[in-house]
Amino acid sequence: MGRPPDPARRERTLARATDYVLAHGLAGLSLRPLAAALDTSPRMLLYDFESKQELVAAVLAEARRRGATRLTENLPPKTASPEERLRAIWAWMSAPERASYVRLIFEVHADGLAHPENYPDQAEAITGWFDTLGATFPDATTGPDDTVTPTLAMAVMRGLLFDLTTTGDRRRTDLALDRFCELLRP
């Protein structure tokens, strides 16, 4: 008879594996070095997650959950202006301590272009921000079902984050966000 599942161990392993991936990225992720870093074995990782792909999916979901929870905790109230909320999102996402999350986002997007089968929920990872961004623009042109304004805001944020991550030019990217906010004013 096999060992019964241990959900607490799985959750501890997932938390540590997420920390590892945030620190080291997904490129070249191998179960042996990951298991060694987590003081477990590749066999136990597969026991808990069934496959490397399931482990990666769980790690990405956990990283998204952590990021979304922390972002939501740091947003101004929904009564704040769209500009205030957008600036708060930018300040939180572009902070140096979030660099590992940003790098992981771009790594997954890039790898997902070449290997979409590895990220079946990549579209959800992108559109999952609509709730947060949609609340930022409550008076969007087409009403509460508007997905265009949050799409535009996320595209600008993603572009500016990519620019900041690759060039390190904080001043220019902050000024670009300022310009975008000006364009959104009535």
Results as ranks from 00 to 15, higher is better:
residue 56 V to E: 08
residue 52 K to D: 03
residue 59 V to D: 06
residue 42 P to S: 10
residue 60 L to D: 06
residue 43 R to D: 11
residue 59 V to G: 04
residue 37 A to N: 05
residue 58 A to F: 10
residue 37 A to M: 04
residue 45 L to I: 05
residue 32 R to S: 14
residue 29 L to Q: 04
residue 53 Q to V: 09
residue 46 L to G: 11
residue 35 A to W: 01
residue 37 A to T: 11
residue 57 A to V: 07
residue 61 A to R: 08
residue 33 P to D: 13
residue 37 A to W: 09
residue 31 L to R: 04
residue 57 A to S: 12
residue 47 Y to D: 09
residue 41 S to A: 14
residue 45 L to M: 05
residue 30 S to F: 01
residue 39 D to F: 11
residue 59 V to S: 01
residue 40 T to H: 06
residue 50 E to Y: 04
residue 51 S to A: 13
residue 47 Y to P: 01
residue 31 L to I: 09
residue 41 S to F: 08
residue 56 V to M: 07
residue 32 R to D: 13
residue 59 V to N: 06
residue 40 T to N: 11
residue 32 R to H: 14
residue 57 A to F: 08
residue 46 L to D: 13
residue 42 P to G: 11
residue 35 A to Q: 10
residue 31 L to A: 08
residue 48 D to W: 05
residue 61 A to I: 09
residue 52 K to H: 07
residue 54 E to K: 09
residue 55 L to P: 03
residue 55 L to G: 02
residue 50 E to M: 00
residue 32 R to Y: 13
residue 46 L to V: 07
residue 47 Y to L: 15
residue 60 L to W: 01
residue 40 T to Q: 11
residue 56 V to P: 02
residue 43 R to Y: 10
residue 37 A to H: 12
residue 33 P to F: 15
residue 53 Q to H: 09
residue 53 Q to S: 15
residue 54 E to I: 05
residue 56 V to L: 05
residue 31 L to V: 01
residue 55 L to I: 02
residue 42 P to K: 03
residue 60 L to P: 06
residue 55 L to C: 09
residue 61 A to M: 09
residue 54 E to F: 00
residue 32 R to F: 12
residue 47 Y to E: 08
residue 31 L to K: 01
residue 36 A to K: 13
residue 61 A to W: 02
residue 53 Q to A: 15
residue 41 S to E: 10
residue 38 L to W: 02
residue 55 L to R: 06
residue 50 E to I: 03
residue 57 A to C: 08
residue 57 A to K: 03
residue 29 L to P: 06
residue 29 L to K: 04
residue 46 L to Q: 14
residue 40 T to R: 06
residue 57 A to T: 09
residue 39 D to H: 11
residue 38 L to E: 05
residue 37 A to Q: 08
residue 43 R to G: 14
residue 39 D to A: 12
residue 59 V to A: 01
residue 35 A to P: 06
residue 35 A to K: 05
residue 41 S to K: 14
residue 43 R to N: 13
residue 50 E to R: 14
residue 60 L to C: 11
residue 54 E to W: 00
residue 36 A to S: 15
residue 48 D to M: 14
residue 48 D to K: 03
residue 34 L to Q: 01
residue 36 A to Q: 15
residue 61 A to N: 10
residue 39 D to K: 03
residue 34 L to M: 10
residue 54 E to M: 12
residue 51 S to W: 00
